[in-house]
Amino acid sequence: MDQQLSDLLQRKAEVELRETELRRKQSLEQFREWLKKHPYLKRTRQDDNYLSLYLRTKKYNLNEVFKSYEKQFLFRLKCAKWFDLSDDNVVARLRSHIECGSKYIIKDYSSTEPIIYIQRFEKFDAEKYPVTDIFQSDFSLFGACLELEKAQICGFRLITDFTNVPMSVFTSVTISEVLDWARALISCPGRYKQNILINIPSIAMTFYNIVSTMLPEKLRKRLVMVKNYEELKNFMDVSILPKEFGGNCDENVYIEETLRIFDEKLEMIRKSNDYEIDVSQFSGRLHNDDVGSFRKLEID
Score class of each variant (00 low, 15 high):
residue 147 E to L: 07
residue 148 L to A: 09
residue 148 L to F: 02
residue 152 Q to T: 04
residue 154 C to F: 10
residue 156 F to I: 04
residue 156 F to G: 00
residue 156 F to C: 02
residue 157 R to I: 13
residue 158 L to S: 05
residue 163 T to R: 03
residue 170 F to K: 13
residue 171 T to P: 05
residue 171 T to M: 08
residue 172 S to R: 15
residue 173 V to I: 13
residue 177 E to Q: 08
residue 177 E to D: 15
residue 181 W to G: 01
residue 181 W to Y: 15
residue 182 A to E: 02
residue 183 R to Y: 12
residue 183 R to H: 05
residue 183 R to L: 03
residue 184 A to M: 06
residue 187 S to D: 01
residue 191 R to E: 10
residue 191 R to L: 06
residue 192 Y to Q: 10
residue 192 Y to T: 02
residue 193 K to V: 12
residue 193 K to A: 04
residue 194 Q to F: 04
residue 197 L to R: 15
residue 198 I to H: 11
residue 199 N to E: 01
residue 199 N to V: 11
residue 201 P to G: 06
residue 201 P to M: 06
residue 206 T to L: 13
residue 208 Y to G: 01
residue 209 N to R: 05
residue 210 I to Q: 03
residue 210 I to L: 07
residue 213 T to D: 10
residue 214 M to T: 14
residue 215 L to W: 00
residue 216 P to Q: 00
residue 216 P to H: 07
residue 217 E to P: 01
residue 218 K to F: 00
residue 227 K to L: 14
residue 227 K to T: 13
residue 228 N to F: 06
residue 232 L to Q: 06
residue 235 F to H: 15
residue 235 F to M: 13
residue 236 M to A: 06
residue 238 V to C: 06
residue 241 L to D: 04
residue 243 K to L: 05
residue 244 E to S: 07
residue 245 F to M: 09
residue 246 G to I: 00
residue 246 G to T: 04
residue 247 G to K: 15
residue 247 G to M: 13
residue 248 N to R: 05
